[in-house]
């Protein structure tokens, strides 16, 4: 049976600690660009935690929302790529073939979630930080787009391991770096094609919704959040 990798983000659990962001940078060799360039919108974060303030001073409430590539089934980024660098894999991921990318940035413009990033610079790590680079992940050079891959290197290594042991790859054998580091278990990764997986169970919750679901991009990431009517009832 083929897999359909998916994620559930429980906004009621997220504390906004940004451990996922740090873990993602470390796992996927994502370079930093410095303050000046970040101010120009050239910073790269495959996952980010958006912060929203609700209410006024005496009783303000903060809402956190981790946003990563939604791995859409009907992805706006894929149809605009002139070189097919951005394409759909058989396991429902939005693949990005760095070799093919010529840096038109059409995909970043088409993406309604702003989760695709352009390499304005060749990646650089000051010594000895270059020694902590993950050898299983490519270093993207200047001029190509990059984005969350759902830790495809972990998916591949788990698949190869399962094949070596002559068995099916099961849900829960591995997880992405962000979900692994999430202290409050707000991020859950798994196989949506497995009806018994935790993502399947959580995604069918009545708290579930899709980010900008009205656009019809059919994201693989599901957000869980209590509705405001529930807040009103509980108040």
């Amino acid at each position: 049976m083929s897999h359909k990798w998916a994620m559930v983000v429980d906004l009621d659990r997220c504390t906004g600690c940004e451990a996922c962001v740090v873990a993602c940078h470390a796992e996927n060799n994502i370079p930093t660009v410095g303050g000046d360039q970040a101010a120009r919108g050239r910073a790269m974060h495959w996952i980010r935690v958006e912060r929203y303030w609700e209410g006024d001073f005496p009783n303000p409430r903060v809402r956190f929302q981790p946003v990563l590539c939604q791995q859409c089934d009907d992805a706006p980024c894929e149809s605009v790529c002139p070189t097919y660098a951005s394409y759909h894999t058989s396991e429902g991921l939005n693949g990005q073939a760095y070799n093919r990318c010529i840096g038109t940035r059409f995909c970043a413009n088409a993406c309604p979630y702003s989760v695709r990033f352009f390499n304005f610079f060749d990646p650089k790590w000051d010594k000895p930080l270059n020694l902590q680079l993950n050898p299983d992940v490519s270093l993207r050079s200047v001029g190509v787009m990059e984005k969350c891959t759902f830790c495809v290197q972990r998916i591949k290594s788990a698949e190869i391991q399962a094949e070596a042991e002559k068995r099916e790859l099961k849900d829960g054998e591995f997880t992405t770096a962000c979900a692994q580091s999430c202290a409050s278990k707000a991020l859950v990764f798994g196989d949506m094609n497995d009806p018994h997986s935790e993502v399947s169970r959580l995604a069918s919750s009545n708290r579930s919704s899709k980010l900008l679901g009205e656009l019809g991009t059919k994201p693989s990431v599901t957000y869980l959040e209590r509705g405001t009517w529930q807040d009103a009832n509980n108040a």
Binding site: Y87, T89, S90, L93, G95, A97, Y98, N99, R100, V137, S138, T149, V152, Q153, K156
Partner: peptide
């Protein structure tokens, strides 16, 4: 066997 890009390139 698979000739998907992401089989080898990632």
């Amino acid at each position: 066997v698979s000739i998907d890009c992401a089989t080898c390139h990632y």
